[in-house]
């Protein structure tokens, strides 16, 4: 772990932050007593959306005995950064009407909504639904209750008005997995946590000596920037 460049750079960042806090506080930044980190400054998501996203990510891939989960791996930051891409604006898709959103699922996406819309409308609906049933928003529930709520979204048992709950859930889960397993250059998979969990070697990209050998691949993963897991 001490060799891990992400660990040392993060420690350096925290040291720098500790020094910088008074200046930021004077400039009007929240002085909560904690050093601000990138996690606290989403670009796309509002504070309440951010709380939902972090809480949901922590349940979809939890930290447990097997290692870090989505939250520790920086998945919320990954999703926030994805919101600034052409994909999130629906610019990779054919988005001319007429739209027929109730078409059979085999014909694929037929809604007018972009991923940004799905998150904005979906998180609001998710927190609204949770508030109605549990008297609190999602992030304030205990983990077991959160799992129950996520199951209601996944199955579509929860009904949202503007975006189907199951579609919102599927996009969220898909993006959480992307953030957990993509190269850290995109903001997630911190410490190569996702790759270490499953034994994926990342960008090693040369297996000449291992093709015909029925053994566990022994080398740790490496990222595009040369970070090793």
């Amino acid at each position: 772990m001490p060799d891990d460049p992400s660990f040392t750079s993060r420690r350096r960042f925290l040291q720098w932050s500790a020094v910088a806090v008074p200046a930021l506080a004077a400039a009007g930044a929240p002085a909560s007593g904690q050093a601000p980190s990138a996690d606290d400054r989403p670009t796309f998501f509002s504070a309440s959306e951010w709380a939902f996203l972090r809480a949901a990510a922590a349940r979809l891939i939890p930290a447990d005995a097997l290692g870090p989960g989505a939250l520790e791996a920086g998945v919320p930051e990954f999703i926030d950064r994805q919101m600034a891409t052409p994909w999130a604006e629906g610019r990779l898709w054919y988005m001319q009407g007429p739209f027929v959103p109730d078409a059979p699922p085999t014909l694929g996406w037929q809604m007018r909504l972009t991923p940004r819309d799905v998150y904005r409308l979906g998180i609001a609906a998710a927190d609204g639904w949770t508030q109605d049933r549990h008297g609190r928003v999602f992030a304030e529930l205990d983990p077991a209750a959160q799992d129950g709520v996520l199951q209601a979204f996944e199955s579509g048992k929860a009904r949202f008005e503007q975006v189907p709950a199951a579609i919102f859930f599927a996009m969220l889960l898909g993006n959480v997995r992307e953030g957990f397993f993509s190269d850290p250059v995109h903001g997630g998979n911190r410490g190569l946590a996702g790759w270490k969990l499953i034994g994926f070697p990342g960008a090693r990209a040369d297996f000449m000596d291992w093709v015909e050998r029925d053994v566990a691949y022994p080398l740790p993963p490496v990222s595009l920037s040369g970070q090793r897991g």
């Binding site: 349940r59 939890p62 499953i198 691949y217």
Partner: peptide, 16 residues
Amino acid sequence: PGWGSAWKQAVAEYYT
């Protein structure tokens, strides 16, 4: 399941 600790356990167990 598609998520949670059971999923995590399974991807760790089966991927390779």
